[in-house]
Every structure is written in structure tokens, then in C-alpha cells.
């Protein structure tokens, strides 16, 4: 057990799974980097350095740099997965999914179903998402609701280093296509992470706080916001339950209902666009299954229905924040 960042936890999961299974390969734009230069062995390793160091252990045969074409990356990785490898493909920014979505939506996600269960596609797609880095409308979106909408792919949104390592290990070992979503703002977050390999099963949400007065449900980066608001409320004498969804598909419906019934007052915090997002989906789930346990209307804290602004003051205003979550909570407390 030692303190590691989210970035290091992801890197360690890749390193350990690649050592354990020679069928695991990493594919993407600049995942190795530095080809033909003096510093090749010490190259950057992805745009934010997550895959740094893998090249020297496994060489270019298994850490594969590609041209800038997401369609080719996903097509190549899906085919490789279908024919025996266990690829981890990188979609640098989730915003670029538009270019390659046919490979994911119509090919990868359908293989197991259309081939009568005879084809398995052990593909992991790692991708960066989320706002806060002043990266403007085309590099700041969340978009996980769009993947969650499609049956046949699993969607993972780790909120902390421990979960990042365990869930990525599970993603790689899983025999179905998995979209593994890394929030850019979390890479430097540190926490206790075992040095040994371990895997966290999909479909199990995690309770990070337990309380009696109000329930917060978050995913990815918003879990941290929920925890902080819960701690603020505790000082004022109100205790909160906080649920971290961990995976959006499969979704841990039992824990969502358990968490909401515990207090009867629910605030859902989701950084994705507000129409047809995870907050609306969960809200419907709660209303349909445990309406009688609710003591107040469900609150959803999301951005407005606009592209992510580039202007820093506007972006700050746009994203869910502790202040917004706290004031939503106080409306129903």
C-alpha cells in the first residue's frame, strides 16, 4: 500500500496487466511517443503522460503509436480484440468519439450479440473527459451518457486512484468492450493504492459517506464535490450519504435505491449535458421504484444545456460546484 496519483494508478494497472498477459497491447496517438528521437525511451507517453514508461518494458510491438485517425485506432483495436488480443486503445479526448463512433456503436458493441455469443471482444477504450482545464468546447465534454445509451458496451467512471487501478484491471480482464473514462482534473489526485494487482467488479457502486439527512449521488469527479459538501453539512449537524456510481453500465440500481431510501432526499450531481444524462436516468429510476420513500423532489445539479465555454469565468459558472450542490441540498433539507 502506498500513496499514488490517479495517473500513477492507471499506469500501474497497465504495467501489471501487460506483464501478466502478453496479449495486452496499448494502441493510440503518441502512447509511446518520441519515435526516432534521442529521448525515445523516456518519451512523454500520451498527451498527459499516463502511458509513460510502458515503452521501455514492452517495446513498440506492444505499445503502438498510430496515425491521427480515431476510426483506424478503434477499427484496428476491435479487430485485434476479436482475433485474440486484449487491446487497450486510447481515444485521446472523448470529444473525438464522433469520428470513430460507428466502429464502437455498430461493430464492437454488436459482435457478441450478432454472432450468437460466439465472438468475444475484450477491448478497453481509455479516454479523457471533463471540463475545468480551459480547453474549450471541443476538449471538455463528458459524453458518457452517449456510451451508456448503447447496449453491449460497459462504461466506467472512476473517481479516485484506488478505484482507477482496480476498475482498469477489471476492464482489461473483462471479455466485453469497456469505455474507461478518466477525468482530466483527477490525474493529480492521490490516495492509498495497494502495490499488488486487484480488480473491482463492475456494477457495484461505493458508499463514501453514510448519513441520515440527505443523499448525494455522484460519478467521476463529482464524487469529490459531493464528499466535500457532505463534510460541510456535517459541521452544521446534518449527516449525508454519498454514493459513487463507479460504473454507469452496468448500473448498480440496488445501491441507488438503497441510498435514496436511506434519507428520502436526493441530490444527483452530473457534469454532463442536462438532457438525457445520468442524473435524469437515475432520477427516473428512483421515481419509478421508490417514489413513496421520497420526502422532497429530486434535485439535479448539472451544467446548463450549452457547449462548455472557453472563457474561464464562464466555465467556472458552467460546471457543478460545491456552492451549487450545497445550495441545492439546502433547498430540500
Amino acid at each position: 500500500m502506498s500513496l499514488k496519483t490517479y495517473r500513477e494508478a492507471i499506469n500501474e494497472a497497465l504495467l501489471q496487466e501487460m506483464k501478466k498477459d502478453e496479449n495486452v497491447v496499448v494502441i493510440g496517438e503518441d502512447v509511446a511517443g518520441g519515435a526516432g528521437t534521442n529521448g525515445e525511451q523516456d518519451a512523454w507517453g500520451g498527451v498527459l503522460g499516463v502511458t509513460k514508461g510502458l515503452l521501455k518494458h514492452f517495446g513498440r510491438e506492444r505499445v503502438i503509436d498510430t496515425p491521427i485517425t480515431e476510426t483506424a485506432i478503434m477499427g484496428m483495436a476491435s479487430g485485434a480484440a476479436l482475433t485474440g488480443l486484449r487491446p487497450v486503445a486510447e481515444l485521446m479526448f472523448v470529444d473525438f468519439m464522433g469520428v470513430c463512433f460507428d466502429q464502437i456503436l455498430n461493430q464492437t458493441a454488436k459482435f457478441r450479440y450478432m454472432f450468437g455469443g460466439k465472438a468475444v471482444t475484450p477491448l478497453t477504450i481509455r479516454t479523457m473527459y471533463g471540463g475545468g482545464l480551459r480547453a474549450a468546447s471541443q476538449h471538455s465534454q463528458c459524453l458518457y451518457p452517449m456510451f451508456t445509451h448503447v447496449p453491449g458496451i460497459k462504461v466506467v467512471v472512476p473517481s479516485n486512484p484506488y478505484d482507477a487501478k482496480g476498475l482498469l484491471t477489471q476492464s482489461i480482464r473483462d471479455n466485453d468492450p469497456v469505455i474507461f473514462m478518466e477525468h482530466k482534473n483527477l490525474y493529480d489526485l492521490s490516495g492509498d493504492v495497494p502495490d499488488e494487482s486487484y480488480s473491482i467488479p463492475f456494477g457495484e457502486a461505493n458508499f463514501t459517506r453514510e448519513g441520515k439527512d440527505i443523499t448525494f449521488i455522484g460519478m467521476g469527479q463529482t464524487v469529490d464535490i459531493c464528499n466535500k459538501v457532505a463534510d460541510t453539512l456535517k459541521k452544521e449537524g446534518k449527516t449525508s450519504t454519498v454514493l459513487d456510481l463507479r460504473t454507469l453500465s452496468p448500473l448498480d440500481e440496488d445501491s441507488i435505491l438503497e441510498a435514496s431510501e436511506e434519507t428520502g432526499k436526493v441530490v444527483i450531481v452530473d457534469e454532463s449535458y442536462p438532457r438525457c444524462n445520468i442524473a435524469t436516468d437515475i432520477s427516473a429510476l428512483i421515481c419509478q421504484n421508490s417514489f413513496d420513500s421520497l420526502k422532497a423532489g429530486i434535485k439535479m445539479v448539472t451544467p446548463p444545456h450549452t457547449p462548455v465555454p472557453f472563457s474561464p469565468p464562464l466555465e467556472d459558472l458552467y460546471l457543478p460546484s460545491e456552492e451549487k450542490v450545497l445550495s441545492a441540498a439546502k433547498e430540500i433539507l
Partner: peptide
């Protein structure tokens, strides 16, 4: 038994080996 206690044991059990 609360959830934290169960989580601690799950963390242990999920380690390879």
C-alpha cells in the same frame, strides 16, 4: 457491521492471489 467494514474486507479479498 457497517459498509466501511465490509469495504475493507472486500479490498483485501480483491487482491490477486
Amino acid at each position: 457491521i457497517n459498509r466501511d467494514l465490509v469495504n475493507e474486507i472486500l479490498k483485501f479479498k480483491r487482491i490477486d492471489g
